[in-house]
Design a protein around this nucleic acid. Sequence first.
DNA 1: GGAAATCCTGAACAACCGTTCAGGATGAAG
DNA 2: CTTCATCCTGAACGGTTGTTCAGGATTTCC
Lengths: 204, 204
Amino acid sequence: MAKGALSAKAPEERRELILRATVAVVRERGFAGTRVADIAEAAGTSQGLVLYHFGSLAGALDQALTLLEDEFYVDLEHDLQEQKGPIERLRHMAELGTGLGPAVGDWRLWLEIWSRALHDDDARETRESLDRRWRAALRDVIAEGVSTGDLRSTDVDGAVVRLASLMDGLAIQLALEDPVMTPDRFTDLWWEAARLELGMMTTS
Amino acid sequence: MAKGALSAKAPEERRELILRATVAVVRERGFAGTRVADIAEAAGTSQGLVLYHFGSLAGALDQALTLLEDEFYVDLEHDLQEQKGPIERLRHMAELGTGLGPAVGDWRLWLEIWSRALHDDDARETRESLDRRWRAALRDVIAEGVSTGDLRSTDVDGAVVRLASLMDGLAIQLALEDPVMTPDRFTDLWWEAARLELGMMTTS
DNA sequence: GGAAATCCTGAACAACCGTTCAGGATGAAG
DNA sequence: CTTCATCCTGAACGGTTGTTCAGGATTTCC
């Protein structure tokens, strides 16, 4: 009972365990600073196993990114569908900065993904599709609000891109802990921008 | 006439040459992908000289970042002071995305700086002070516009942070070449947001 | 013009890291 | 129980990279 320290009873679980460990390491050290040894240690396995399952370090990072993408979107969809009307959903989006969503609000990871996307085509496409889905969700909420008369907009496309981009920009200050930004201020600033864009009445 | 291939006649110029080469390499490969050998090759010198002047690779990167910070700000100030009134200056800011400013509009470098700031305290402070100056310039323009009556705002502080953050967010799409973004659209989107925030009349 | 400080090079060193590999352990199939 | 494919490990290999260093070239200072 010496070798094969951790039984091979559930290779599928083992794969996911390694991917989650990879995400944890990336969160801490960044994509560029993540080593195979770090992943193995965080997952409690050997370096060899990481390479056995994913072929290379780049493979492990790519798979981890894919896992992240799925979870980001699942989290967002799930959270949004809990809200009743368009105003409530919009408000919920404004509160993403407060760390409610388990994965969506992990802004440091977003910065990592952006910089990786600069030099890795796979990461670029992953980010792009993720942003497309995020903007589509925002567009749906706004379109619904316009149709119910709760919101007003003469340029829905423009409003969507502006509000989505504003959230990214605010997220940078939050991730880098700029003194001008706090989670509450993040929410307030974005909510005020949404009011300006979408003709909402005074704060409820 | 064999050794000392490049004469030591101007060590100060040589330092700057190396720093500019460093910036060029970072622009292409990113902070994490920049090697001492790359810098030496780009500068046309030896690896040893890079280390001689800056002590370490990290030292060279830090100094290059400082050089960038200075140039960013000098460029911005210079460009802005060429404009007559607050509206013109604001418009000029909106056009930063079109690549007019020689260094300011280099959005890929911004993404690099942000991700480096996540894991390097020096880079974090450099970015923070740079952002502070950039927001101060924006605030001055808005304050001037409000005082002359060209602009209206009930919340100058909020408008400044929102418009500065929006520019960062739009810059991300531009740097990553997202299909929804072009330099012209960047300008249009930010300009429209400024109009919404600052109560400007119809497009001139 | 000579000595000392500075500038610069190319090679060598040492550490790090991704990947490979031979083989042991485990679970499934027959 | 035997056999075979799969899962897993730990050590070793090879390439890359930051840094050091001895010494040559150049400039500065007297």
